[in-house]
Computed example of a mutant assay.
Amino acid sequence: MTEKLSDETRGPLLTPLFEAGWSLTDDRDAIAKTFVFDDFIAAFAWMTKVAFWAEKWNHHPEWRNVYKTVHVELITHDVDGLSALDAKLARKMDSLMET
């Protein structure tokens, strides 16, 4: 079962993400980041890659795409906040930007 991040685990898991451009959302215990690509095709290709991992891990992002920009919010709805799955998917999203 997935657990909400404890105070002890938040720092080690979230600090590297904050350094990579992720931020806490204002209205709930979630993290967000906006990814900008060269064009729509690049944005959609990245979203497709992410979708495979999200499905594999059964952890799906909240996201919206407008042309070459994808805004992502990650939260674990089962725990009404952040879990290790959010950090894991955020790291994967960042790594897929590099490929």
Score class of each variant (00 low, 15 high):
12 P>Y: 06
7 D>E: 15
25 T>R: 14
73 E>T: 09
32 A>M: 11
29 D>R: 04
26 D>E: 15
50 V>A: 12
96 L>H: 03
28 R>H: 11
74 L>Y: 02
90 A>P: 07
87 A>E: 05
24 L>G: 04
8 E>I: 09
33 K>W: 05
5 L>F: 06
70 V>Q: 01
41 I>W: 02
54 A>N: 04
99 T>I: 07
2 T>H: 09
95 S>V: 02
18 F>D: 01
39 D>T: 05
32 A>N: 07
90 A>I: 05
13 L>I: 04
59 H>Y: 08
87 A>K: 03
7 D>N: 11
74 L>T: 06
1 M>E: 12
5 L>T: 01
83 S>N: 09
18 F>V: 10
66 V>C: 06
28 R>C: 11
43 A>G: 13
96 L>V: 05
92 K>Q: 15
30 A>L: 06
62 E>I: 00
12 P>K: 11
99 T>D: 14
21 G>C: 13
34 T>G: 11
12 P>L: 07
65 N>H: 08
49 K>W: 02
68 K>I: 01
28 R>K: 14
76 T>H: 09
2 T>A: 10
24 L>V: 07
44 F>H: 10
19 E>I: 06
68 K>V: 01
22 W>L: 05
45 A>R: 15
91 R>T: 13
41 I>A: 15
68 K>C: 02
77 H>Y: 11
84 A>I: 04
60 H>G: 08
18 F>G: 06
98 E>Q: 13
67 Y>T: 00
88 K>S: 11
60 H>C: 03
81 G>Q: 08
97 M>Q: 14
45 A>Y: 08
43 A>P: 08
9 T>D: 15
21 G>R: 14
77 H>K: 06
84 A>N: 04
47 M>L: 15
94 D>Q: 14
79 V>L: 08
41 I>T: 13
22 W>K: 00
3 E>L: 15
19 E>T: 13
84 A>P: 02
35 F>G: 01
83 S>Y: 10
42 A>D: 13
38 D>M: 03
64 R>A: 05
88 K>F: 00
42 A>M: 06
60 H>S: 07
50 V>P: 00
78 D>Q: 05
83 S>M: 10
34 T>Y: 09
22 W>F: 09
24 L>N: 07
58 N>A: 07
5 L>M: 12
61 P>G: 04
31 I>S: 02
98 E>K: 12
16 P>I: 05
23 S>W: 03
28 R>D: 10
83 S>Q: 11
86 D>L: 10
76 T>I: 07
72 V>S: 00
80 D>C: 00
48 T>K: 10
90 A>Q: 03
98 E>S: 10
87 A>L: 01
2 T>Q: 12
80 D>G: 09
22 W>Y: 06
28 R>I: 02
53 W>V: 13
72 V>P: 01
43 A>K: 04
75 I>M: 11
64 R>F: 13
98 E>N: 12
11 G>K: 14
36 V>E: 15
3 E>A: 15
73 E>F: 00
84 A>D: 14
90 A>Y: 01
2 T>F: 03
58 N>L: 00
67 Y>N: 03
38 D>W: 00
1 M>F: 10
68 K>P: 02
